[in-house]
Nucleic acid binder design. Structure first.
Length: 189
DNA sequence: CACTAGATTTTCT
DNA sequence: GAAAATCTAGTGG
């Protein structure tokens, strides 16, 4: 089952937590969609969150965060890495969830060198770039989030400060990073 | 093992 | 001009 648009019309914190254990499906051309489990996320919430691009107002780059929920926000950091986010909350409220790490589910993807344990690595593996910007994740094409591969028994959700946002003042210590305890694909920090 | 430099676009100063 | 929601390869213990 694909999460409906309303799933994303909630706070980024709730969505970030609930996405853990869900699956990301990438359909490209013919053949079955490739599957990955989401094991690590971060929430970026509202105009006051100094770690969020939206804290400095709307720009051409961050415009998708101000739009309707359930769309992709893909941008480039450090001049070369694409970041994959899903917009959350109502239109006009800038918030998004950054997908930070995935666990391969499809057999073909487990065997290769593909270890999507980091936000830049996973966009490279999934071949996500800015042509995916603004695309919905609740349609049965392109990129989808599916409520399968739910959490296994004993898998606990952990919270931690977000990565790479030391400049964000009081917001740098918010526990808005979520991950599955002990999962080997969670990025190393 | 720990640490550092470099890649290089978007955005704001 | 500088710094950024990062990663890799390289150096040196």
């Amino acid at each position: 089952m694909i999460y409906p648009e309303s799933f994303y019309q909630r706070s980024a914190l709730s969505v970030a937590r609930d996405l853990l254990g869900s699956c990301l499906a990438r359909r490209s051309g013919a053949g079955p969609a490739a599957l990955w489990r989401i094991v690590e996320t971060e929430a970026y919430q509202g105009p006051l969150d100094l770690a969020s691009h939206a804290s400095r107002g709307r720009t051409a780059r961050n415009a998708p965060m101000f739009g309707p929920p359930g769309r992709l926000y893909v941008y480039l950091v450090y001049g070369l890495h694409h970041m994959l986010n899903i917009v959350t909350g109502p239109s006009g409220w800038p918030a998004a969830v950054l997908i930070r790490a995935l666990e391969p589910v499809s057999k073909t993807d487990q065997t290769s060198e593909k270890f999507p344990s980091g936000p830049a690595k996973l966009t490279k593996v999934l071949r996500v770039d800015r042509s995916d910007n603004n695309l919905p994740v609740f349609d049965a094409n392109g990129l989808m989030v599916i409520r399968s591969g739910a959490r296994r028994s004993g898998e606990k959700i952990m919270r931690a400060p977000r990565v790479g946002v030391d400049y964000a003042g009081p917001y740098k210590d918010k526990l808005w990073r979520y991950y599955l305890a002990g999962n080997p694909y969670v990025s190393k920090y």
